[in-house]
Design a protein around this nucleic acid. Sequence first.
DNA 1: TATATATGAAACTAATTGGTTGCAAATATA
DNA 2: TATATTTGCAACCAATTAGTTTCATATATA
Lengths: 106, 106
Amino acid sequence: MRRDVFQAIADPTRRAIIALIAIQAMTPNALAAHFDTTRQAVSKHLKILTECELVQQEQQGRAIYYSLQIEKMKEIDVWLSQYRKIWETRFNQLDNVLVTLKNQKI
Amino acid sequence: MRRDVFQAIADPTRRAIIALIAIQAMTPNALAAHFDTTRQAVSKHLKILTECELVQQEQQGRAIYYSLQIEKMKEIDVWLSQYRKIWETRFNQLDNVLVTLKNQKI
DNA sequence: TATATATGAAACTAATTGGTTGCAAATATA
DNA sequence: TATATTTGCAACCAATTAGTTTCATATATA
């Protein structure tokens, strides 16, 4: 099963979940209250986010608190940085950027 | 039909296409030669990338050259920047804040 | 202990996705 | 003009996805 960060952030509900738990850890029930969907649907999104290591969970009694694993977000930043180089240096060092990109593959 | 940048970059083939046309404009045929798939499949990916304005096309005779619309990539950067702030500030301190919040029972 | 609450997981459904084959239109070339 | 090339588009298919309903388990509380 393909589970990478890019596929995880493709869904708008999952991006909203990420935004919420970036501020503070939340339970599936508390998260579901923020959306027009069921607790089970949120739970499935949390499972996907967990599988690609974007969130971590901590059990407290019968409640499970989910929080954002911010380190994993850097993966997106690393991928994006090659393109950031392009728009930041478009008019001066374009040649160098192209060489870097070509050697990096995907 | 939902067509946003996040959904567009979710597919690995599309990310590979983006990487290729970031270097130089290419035709669907030339792109398809880089992948183990048909020209039509690449064409569908290009259509999706066009719909969310990640690529632009330029007709030259019967050939159509596709290139990356780098400006649109900034949209991802804008979204990511809120999280970049989190990992760039000292996040030992931030972790403490989150734990404190969590223990306060939301 | 009995009941309520919080959660994950399984089975199912509808919609979407990535891919295919086939075809028509437009352009280049013999 | 006749033929080959380049492309987009439509129809179709298999796999995946997002969501629902239902159920079992674990924990808190009366």
